[in-house]
């Protein structure tokens, strides 16, 4: 199988997954009795108390085409999705959902991407080192990583907030920047942004390190016992070279591992944002749920799903590029 074919197959697969995921988001609320959509329609019939709410709901029914048959609703839904139109928010009427997400997403990405990358790299280095060294370092690292990864991200986040943000007061406990600060490209504002960034960033990195180190340790132990390592040693290759072999080969499955753990990471990052009141989409999702802002909830869920699918697709492509076994079609890809 050539690499191009592999990319094409992966692409088609993710397209299928995209349709299933978005269809689920469409269908589930319409299947469950008492769901938010039918509740809104019912309220319209019985008369909504305030006139402004009446207007909000009317535009909702119009945007979602709720007076049309379900099949047409679905087609409209997909059409709007492809045009990036996610409807109008209830709580921030008449602000569009796309606009709200557009403002929040940069915060989230700026927090997530570096945190995941740093956590992944540090976790893999620690795990490989533990496997190679064994002995004391390994014996200490393993239980610590297990404890850290057993500690839910939100508990770690609250603890960090309390210890470093409140008790020691080293960093601001919440927010993306100070209320008094005016967003600008000045040095003071950058420092302010960074000091708010530290706690959510470190708590996300810590959780990622724990889980990645455990996986990498296992993979490296496996690689350490392979025949090619022994053979390289017998041919007089230096330890440094052999460790680089092991690291690279154990890291490959970790790329897939990273892709798969995105699903769990998303939950973690949403709540980390909420704990720190960080102005990303997690905090917006939290507010939307509290205020029954269904269009905003749906919009955020869709945007996160699409982002995760893209990230996965990208990692799969990279994996196929780095591992010759994929090209030879010898290994099964998940």
């Amino acid at each position: 199988m050539s690499y191009g074919k592999y990319v094409l197959r992966k692409g088609l697969w993710y397209l299928l997954t995209f349709f299933i995921a978005t269809t689920l988001v469409f269908i589930i609320p319409r299947l469950i009795p008492g769901n938010p959509i039918s509740a809104i329609v019912a309220q319209m019939g019985s008369g909504v108390p305030s006139e402004s709410m009446q207007r909000v709901y009317e535009s909702f029914i119009r945007d979602y085409g709720l007076d049309k048959p379900v099949v047409l609703q679905y087609i409209d839904y997909m059409k709007n999705l492809f045009h990036g139109e996610l409807g109008i928010s209830f709580s921030l009427y008449p602000k569009g959902v796309t606009e709200i997400i557009g403002e929040a997403l940069p915060w989230t990405l700026a927090l997530q991407i570096p945190a995941i990358l740093v956590g992944w790299i540090l976790g893999n280095l620690l795990g490989a080192y533990a496997a190679y060294k064994r002995g004391k370092f390994d014996k200490v690292l393993f239980p610590v990583s297990l404890l850290v990864s057993a500690m839910p991200y939100y508990v770690l986040a609250i603890l960090m907030q309390y210890i470093f943000g409140v008790y020691l007061g080293w960093f601001p406990p919440s927010g993306g920047y100070s209320m008094s600060a005016f967003p600008s490209f000045t040095f003071d504002f950058m420092v302010d942004i960074l000091s708010h960034y530290t706690l959510p960033f470190v708590s996300l990195v810590a959780v990622t390190i724990g889980s990645q180190a455990i996986g990498m340790r296992e993979m490296s132990i496996y690689e350490l016992n392979t025949d090619y390592v022994n053979y390289s040693r017998m041919l007089g290759l230096e330890d440094r070279k052999i460790v680089s072999y092991i690291f690279r080969n154990a890291m490959l499955p970790q790329i897939t591992g990273l892709a798969i753990s995105f699903g769990t990471m998303v939950g973690g990052s949403i709540i980390t944002e909420i704990v720190f009141g960080y102005p990303g989409i997690g905090t917006w999702l939290f507010n939307a749920i509290r205020q029954n802002d269904y269009p905003l909830i749906q919009g955020i869920v869709l945007v996160i799903t699409i982002t995760v699918l893209f990230a996965n697709f990208f990692l799969d492509i990279m994996y196929g590029f780095l591992d010759p076994r994929i090209k030879a079609g010898e290994m099964e890809e998940g």
């Binding site: 392979t226 025949d227 090619y228 022994n230 053979y231 390289s232 040693r233 017998m234 041919l235 007089g236 290759l237 230096e238 072999y245 690279r248 080969n249 490959l252 780095l322 591992d323 010759p324 076994r325």
Partner: peptide, 29 residues
């Protein structure tokens, strides 16, 4: 250990291992 690898193994004394099927690093040409 370092001198053995540099001066003896691979150059003076070399091996053909038992399990040649897996003796080549799978991700290197």
């Amino acid at each position: 250990d370092r001198e053995l690898r540099k001066e003896i193994l691979g150059t003076k004394i070399s091996y053909v291992p038992q399990s040649s099927m897996n003796s080549l690093n799978p991700t290197r040409r």
